[in-house]
Computed example of a mutant assay.
Amino acid sequence: MTLATLAEVLQPALKGNYAVAGLVTLGWEDMRAFVAAAEAEGCPVILQAGPSCRVHTPLPILGKMFRHLAETASVPVVAHLDHGYSVEECRAALDAGFTSLMYDGSRKPLAQNIDETAAIARLAHDAGISCEGEIGFVGYAEGESSAGTDAKEAAQFARETGVDAMAISVGNVHLQQDKQGGLDVARIAEIEALTDVPLVIHGGSGVPVSQRRALATGSKICKFNIGTELRMAFGDALRHAVNSDPGRFDRVAILKETHEPMVRAARTVLSAFGHHQKGA
């Protein structure tokens, strides 16, 4: 069994100068493909259940799916709650067998965010699992605007919450479909000068691959969340499978044809984070 906590995969990444991918899952087909891709690349993977995934499938089921995949995987697999918004939701994920809780208090005032995230971190650590928090606010493409992370606030947040990983807002945006943007390298340097906590980039799909690679191997960014570009790959594969035979109706046969394209897409993502270059 290779079920792992977030700290167990990010601390080696921090020391080894590489990053681990947090892959956003929506169902069995993509999470299965992500683990297969991680095994093919010989690297750890973080399976993430975000809000839309949890609306579709209950947390107890997701926990069993993640743990089942980890039990037979040859690489470390983290079962991660992405964007938990309440104590109740985080506790439910813990009870469901998740090994990492991300509490998102980023829309709240700094003091409240610190207090609430610290409480979730204590809950997680008492259970032997990990906690990620967010300081600053990462906005959404065609939605809420971002609020950049202040380096001194980030240092305070890391120190007072005890989180195992800290998500920051440095030009990244959720749900971005192109890679025309880029991260604020100067702001990242300011933040990492003041803390040793592994840093996390949400909205990683919008970051150019060359910058992902450079930051994974040359900064304290140890986790990139990737969702949109893999959802796009799944949509393309599903559309091709359906359109190739309009008379076909068996969804198992149709969904089976998404597996290999999703493994290829995920391997492309995973290969950019420096795991092999550092001999990890």
Rank of each mutant, 00 (worst) to 15 (best):
V209T: 15
I46M: 08
A7P: 03
I114A: 11
S219Y: 06
A40C: 09
H83Q: 13
I129E: 04
D245E: 15
T117Y: 04
Q176L: 13
Y140T: 12
V55S: 10
H275F: 14
K220S: 13
R91N: 13
D30I: 10
D245L: 06
V55T: 05
G218H: 14
A92C: 04
E229R: 12
V45W: 03
D82I: 11
A92F: 06
H83N: 14
R239T: 15
Y103I: 10
A151S: 13
M232H: 11
G274N: 04
A165P: 12
R32S: 15
G139C: 03
D150R: 08
G162V: 01
G162I: 01
G133V: 05
Q156S: 06
A214N: 02
M262D: 04
R239C: 08
H56V: 07
M166A: 11
L101S: 04
L238S: 09
A73L: 05
R122N: 12
K108A: 09
I46Y: 03
E192L: 00
T149H: 10
I201C: 08
M1Q: 09
V35S: 03
E89R: 09
S86D: 14
H276P: 00
L23V: 15
R107H: 14
A33D: 03
Q177V: 15
T149G: 10
K220Y: 07
E142H: 11
A92H: 04
G235V: 00
V55Y: 12
A118Q: 09
A155P: 01
K278Y: 01
A40F: 12
T258K: 04
H174K: 08
W28H: 10
R213E: 11
G143Y: 14
G181Q: 10
G274E: 02
K179E: 15
A119M: 09
T5Y: 01
A154H: 09
E29L: 01
V45M: 02
G204T: 11
L26I: 08
S169F: 00
L3R: 06
K64W: 01
V252H: 04
R248W: 05
C222H: 02
T258D: 11
C131N: 02
R213P: 00
Y103F: 15
E71V: 07
T258W: 04
R239K: 15
D245F: 04
C90K: 04
E29H: 05
D30M: 11
Q176E: 15
T72S: 14
D82W: 00
V9K: 00
A253G: 12
A265G: 08
L175Y: 11
E116V: 07
V9T: 02
I46A: 07
I221S: 06
S244L: 13
L194W: 05
F34C: 01
D236C: 08
Y85R: 13
L110R: 06
L81A: 02
R231M: 14
G218E: 13
D115W: 01
P60R: 03
D104A: 07
S146I: 08
A186G: 02
S106Q: 09
A233F: 04
A272G: 00
A253R: 03
G203Q: 00
I120L: 09
G274I: 05
V87K: 06
A79S: 15
A33S: 13
T117K: 03
